[in-house]
Design a protein around this nucleic acid. Sequence first.
DNA 1: TGGTGCATGTAACCTGTTACATGATTCG
DNA 2: CGAATCATGTAACAGGTTACATGCACCA
Lengths: 175, 175
Amino acid sequence: MSLRIAALGLLKSGPGSGYDLIKRSHRHLANIWPATQSQLYGELARLASAGLIEVSTTGPRGRKEYRLTDQGRAELSRWLTTPHKEKPSRSPARLQLFLLGELSSGQAREHLLQVTQRHEAECVRLAALRDTDDVDSPLYHRAALDLEIRMATTTTEWARELLTEIEARGAVGGP
Amino acid sequence: MSLRIAALGLLKSGPGSGYDLIKRSHRHLANIWPATQSQLYGELARLASAGLIEVSTTGPRGRKEYRLTDQGRAELSRWLTTPHKEKPSRSPARLQLFLLGELSSGQAREHLLQVTQRHEAECVRLAALRDTDDVDSPLYHRAALDLEIRMATTTTEWARELLTEIEARGAVGGP
DNA sequence: TGGTGCATGTAACCTGTTACATGATTCG
DNA sequence: CGAATCATGTAACAGGTTACATGCACCA
């Protein structure tokens, strides 16, 4: 249901073809609402026939440039001002952590070590993204990125602390 | 693909019927890998015909109590020791935050206020869960819960700081 | 004996993923 | 010309959600 909104959001920064929007989405929405090409084309067709967007220009190779209609803008702010219940996300990584007790404590330590390393790398990647960001990029885009960075940082800290905790236990109580 | 694993994980704490496992999953896995009744029954049938679990007892009302087989245990630890790439999760709430610039600054402030409040409440809820937790509940179950609490805390802090930041701006530059 | 809870399952639908199909245009 | 890029779309499949269908067993 919210790919609809993501597509409208992508069109807020200016009109564009499906092809353009996919690129925009890879640049900006990849971590928030990833979408594939097939999905986006379908959604654009549906949005157009619902009157929320319209074709502003047609170009070479059958290019259709879409833009928001007033109806679309209205729908976007309507959606933004209504609360949405968060459905808990499924994460293989979190499932692994939850079931970590099934492994030997050596394997578990190894796993946690990799978790810290992966999240540290993610912090670095996101921080680099933030630092190469346009100075004039919207406040909330930076804020959203900032939240992601904090999440990665928190996870790193958590994993590191858990690791020292189980190492302390291991040293006292055995393997 | 990982509902399979979640189901195996649920059976690690002892044999049970589909009905039992749904309750277990509501109790323990609701935030990590939520599953519906229909889904779980289907998965159990598939796991049984793949030999990863087996019927240990049949009871009244056609009750089938399943238990892990050695093959199932092996599959579980195989999965736990292989890395899984995280596919970015879709979150309506994060999409809202990302697009918050579309709203008036008053509406945006209001929204952020609600975000802080909702996450504070979530912190409280999770903390209560942790405190009523069994003393003998597995280390990694508590650790997973702890991670969730930290996430909620981080989000709260982030939203509060963002709120004061835009309020400062609003006071200087106008709404 | 009648309601609550136990217990299993099917069907329709929606969303998202992967792979494929097709062709025009631009530029070196 | 030929390769890369632009550009749109379809089809098959996998996973998840909601709603419905069915019936036994227990106990107050």
